[in-house]
Structure formats: C-alpha cells, structure tokens
Design a protein around this nucleic acid. Structure first.
Lengths: 233, 233
DNA sequence: CGATCTTCATAAAATCTTCACGCCTTCTCC
DNA sequence: GGAGAAGGCGTGAAGATTTTATGAAGATCG
C-alpha cells in the first residue's frame, strides 16, 4: 500500500524527472503529464489523490486545468510556479488549489505540503486505514464496525487492534509473537491463547463462513495472514 | 450568516487588531487569544472553523497548540511566522497545520488561503449548522432545543456542547478524552464521570427508548458515537 | 430559590482472561 | 509404514476485571 498516488503535471521534462524520483522515493505512486489537456485525461485512468500542477504551461494552463480538476473533491491540488507574486497566489488558490509552492522549492517543504494536503482529503489515502474494502468486506475503523455482506458488527478494542495490524500487513503471514506484541504489548508474546480466542470472534464477524475463513487465514506453526482476495483453492 | 468563524492567536496586540478589522471586513466572525493556552480554552466557547496561529509565542507555542487542536478535524489551522525557513515550514505542516503564511503577509493572499482552507473542511462552516436533522431527530442550536418525534426538550449548555461535538463527528467513535477536552476544557480529560452523567441526560431527551440508545451509542473502552441510522444488530 | 453542574456509591454490562476438551497435523520410535 | 506421543488449533464457557449506567445528594451560580 503506497502513501498515495500523485500526478505530476509540468511541461519541463527535467522537473518531471526530478519529481518522479523524489516522490517515488518518498513512497508515492507517480504518473506525469506534459500539459493541462493530458493531465485531465490521465486523471481518469490514473486516479491520483493529488495533482502537482505547474501554473505556466503552453496550451491549457495550470489555472484552467485546476478549475476542471476541482470538480472532484477527492483530489488535492498543489500548484507550482516560478513567479512569487501575490496575484499568482490568489488566482491559484481561488482557482481551487489547496496549496501553492514557488519554484525553486525545497524538497522537504514540498513533501511536507504534500503530506498536509493529503491529510485533508475526504477519503485520506494515509488513513486509507480509516475505511478498508476487501471484496465483500468493508471495515470502518472510525466507527469501529465491519460489514460483511449485509451483516454489520461492532468491534471491541482488542478485536480492532488485531484486525488493524493484520490488515496493515495484509498478504503477509504475521507470526503469533508479532501479533501478540503489537496488540497486547511486549510482555505477552507467549499468550497464544489470546490470539485464538480473538481470531475466532473476528472470524465470526467478518467471514461469511467462519469454518472456511477466506480473509483471516491461519498459517500453521507460524501465525495468521489477512487476505483480501478469496483464497485460491 | 457569516462566512465562517476564525480565532486569531497571536501575542502581539497589533497583529490581533489588524486581523480583527481585516477579517471582520471580509465577512468572518472573529475572536482572538494571546497565547496557546488561551487559544485552547477559547476554542471551546467560540468554536471556530479556522484558527490563525502564530508559531512564536511565549508560554505554550503555536506548534504545541496546533498538535492539540488537530484532534478535531473540523477545525482548519493556518500558522503564522516571521521566519521563512524550511525547518519552520516542515515543522508547522507536520504538526498538523493545513497551511502556512510568512509575516509580513499580503492581506489578499491571506484571505485566499483562508478561503482555500475553509473549502477543505470536512463539515460545512459552523454558520451553516444552526439546525440539524438526523433521521427523526431535529436539533435547533439557536433555540437550544431538540425535538425527537413529538417531544421537544430544552438543552442545558453542557448538554448542547456535548451533543454538538458528537454530531459534528457523527459516525465516528469519539474518545472520552476528546469529548471532555472539547466540552470541559483541556484539564478535564479524566473526568469520565461527567460524560456519563450528561450522556444519560441527553439520552433521556433524544432517544425514544433511552435504555436502547439508537443515536448516542456507547463504544466501550473508547467513548461515544453519534449515529444517524438505526443501529445494526 | 431554581437550574445546572459535581461528586459519589452501587448495580449492571461489556470485555478480557483463563482453561478444558477434542480434533488434527507432525514427529518419533518400532 | 504405522501406532502412539506431542503439540498446534478451534471451540465453548466460566470467572475476573474494568467500564458503564443509574440514582441521588451536595455544591455552585445567577
């Protein structure tokens, strides 16, 4: 799971290259576009969480593109410019940009602004942990509920912590000890009984058929593994 | 109806004065505070949509105050500073600020940033929240009354604050501590007894069957949650 | 004084812990 | 190989612990 998806829009190849390496290194998934028009197209296929938008481009400028992008409230927009004038800033923000960075910018500052902008998204990607979908399963960590099909259940604190840890490490087989220490603390690495009891109650809540678990799979002699997809038979 | 409520936090009287006239002129309701501590207190009574927070103040600094304010996602935070260093910016943004303005700033830019920040708020600005409907429930914050079905009741100040906070964070399980700090203030984080007493009286007023609460749901070991929909079984 | 808020003791409820039983897989020894 | 032992795993339920609900008395404020 990445920290978020970012679309870089700039007509200078060098900027695009720098951005791509920097942001990829920071854990984001990147795509780029050379113009406003291309950006609007790529948004549909790439579905970014955030768009880094150069204000000054040939053809459709950043401002015009911004006004179009704004239609989707689930996309954050940070505009880039070389000019540090008040007029530019006000125009950019009122066009719907969430933030504004002046070139040349410092990388740490850009990253911080990206984090801040993503944090504000209605469905924040970093708190993609707030709501998780796994096939027919929906988990709302804020409301502390899981919905499996039509049945919605409430999660107790330990159940929630356990499930969260499993989901954060989905597809990986998490050892008993690791789970216990994550949920109960460093002194409980041996209380495998706890795990069994709580895994059972979790399964009762999220598995359509608790005797044939599809999501919380047991890895014998190792631990448990959360699987998004139905298990291959 | 105003465009929103803004709390100005700065230790320099002159800044506060300028801000007050400027922002009032722009259609906002303003209150101000001289320190971080005062800000945290005033937040409760004034209930701003946005806090303009000077980063450099005697006593509790802007960064510390920011981290506390951040608990409520329905408040936007813009930090002010005289220093334009990268370190300051990154710190401010990572402390939870939504944006960052360097003094001396241009008024139009500040106003544009305020508009952008308010636009991103998850819940509409307070001014639009005078009346709320939640299923069969109607709440009139101006008249301080709730109507559940045919029964209309008067709400005491604490009841109103508590209910308001719960509703603004509807569907989310709000921790005891957060509720207490939002209603009673930062020093009352442990008085869980207060909560129980007032939750009870709220339930008596808004639940059709207070023994089976449908709106104010208790989340054991965590806090309470306001639910619009009937509870799933 | 009345309304509201605090404080407190007790009963009720939810969650967590512990444990025993039976099934199953793996390992060991013949 | 195959029988038996050892231990992991699923299950159900009783008991312990902590939290929550409730009623009421005292304190506070205007």
């Amino acid at each position: 799971m990445s920290a978020g998806r970012i679309l870089v829009v700039d007509d200078e190849p060098q900027i695009r290259r720098i951005m791509r390496t920097t942001l990829t290194g920071a854990g984001y998934e990147i795509d780029d576009a050379k113009s406003g028009e291309e950006a609007l197209n790529k948004v549909r296929s790439f579905r970014p969480d955030l768009v880094l938008l150069d204000i000054n481009m040939p053809g459709m400028g950043g401002l015009a593109a911004c006004k179009d992008l704004r239609a989707d409230p689930n996309i954050a927009i940070i505009m880039l410019t070389v000019r540090n004038t008040e007029k530019d800033k006000v125009e950019a923000l009122d066009a719907g940009a969430d933030d504004f960075v002046v070139k040349p910018f410092s990388i740490p500052e850009l990253l911080a602004r990206i984090r801040a902008a993503l944090r504000r998204l209605p469905v924040a990607p970093q708190s993609a942990l707030e709501r998780v979908r796994a096939g027919t399963l929906r988990i709302d960590f804020g409301a502390r509920t899981v919905t499996a099909g039509v049945k919605t259940s409430h999660l107790t604190p330990k159940e929630l912590d356990l499930l969260r840890y499993l989901i954060q490490h989905a597809t990986k087989a998490v050892p008993h000890r690791e789970l216990l220490q994550a949920v109960w603390g460093p002194d409980y690495g041996d209380q495998v009984d706890y795990l069994r009891v709580f895994i059972k109650s979790l399964r009762k809540k999220i598995e359509s058929n608790p005797e044939k678990p599809e999501h919380i799979v047991t890895e014998p002699w190792v631990g448990y593994r959360f699987s998004t997809d139905p298990e291959p038979e």
